[in-house]
Design a protein around this nucleic acid. Sequence first.
DNA 1: CTGATATCAGAGGGACTGAGATGC
DNA 2: CGCATCTCAGTCTCTCTGATATCA
Lengths: 153, 153
Amino acid sequence: MEGAAPDPILRFTTLPSWQLSQTATHARRLLADGFAAVGATGYQYRVLAALEQLGAASQAELGRRSGIHLSDIVATINELAEQGFVERSPDPADRRRNIITPTTSGRRRLRTLDEQLTEIQDELFAPLSPGELDELTHLLTKVLDHHRERTNR
Amino acid sequence: MEGAAPDPILRFTTLPSWQLSQTATHARRLLADGFAAVGATGYQYRVLAALEQLGAASQAELGRRSGIHLSDIVATINELAEQGFVERSPDPADRRRNIITPTTSGRRRLRTLDEQLTEIQDELFAPLSPGELDELTHLLTKVLDHHRERTNR
DNA sequence: CTGATATCAGAGGGACTGAGATGC
DNA sequence: CGCATCTCAGTCTCTCTGATATCA
């Protein structure tokens, strides 16, 4: 904080897209670190979360709901299945599909990851008042909705 | 917009960190696509922008100012030098260092990329009023500053 | 010796592409 | 036939780790 150089401010530092990107990078680092500490990834969390709310689903379904590419769903399900967090079984009604179901330990893991996520989020947005956080999500939602319409997702 | 499934909203979809991440992903996709169209990357832009404001600098200096790891600076300078946008010459005053200087075509390239960046940013934040955009940058800056203090960068 | 600089090799997560096999 | 599902093998950008050689 004292001495050293005056740090010339680079132009792009003040661009909204830069700040957005930087903040997101920081958030992801916090998240990835927290998840990595227990051997999880963001994809795994998203799939488990989607699974909880869908009960059971095919991989294609999971991909659609969690916004993850099918090819990455395959890998993620592999990881989760190896660790015993989900089970992969063929769908008797449609033999192209696998039915993915969460196990008890999978549901427990989701709760663990949820707690971490909450903590990290609190830390990340600590400098904002509740009102400011609302405003931030409002603005981001506005941007997101606009592009969802234009690109159909 | 009509018919189809009601789309059950996944929990994490409403989390501020999720929206932040999604918006940033979208921004980066727009940016990366725009840059890739002319054969550039985000790293290259950041280095060129830093270079413009520093005039000439060592690679270590460039890394610090642009927030890019030294090892990645090496690769980025390689790319920029191959395309004739910068020149790498040894520093006679300190033989560990290379002095990186932008060429005329490098400065021209920066201007091109700047224009693209402006366009993309306008498109990205189109749904926001000028006041809302200010508010967004204000909130993001607040978050960013807070963590800069805590982590020394 | 300590520290800074530059280089190289590699890993990792996240988003994405393309091709193939199978079954509806 | 067209279309959906699953799988495999890659690419790309960005961030970061570690080791090494060189020089201040």
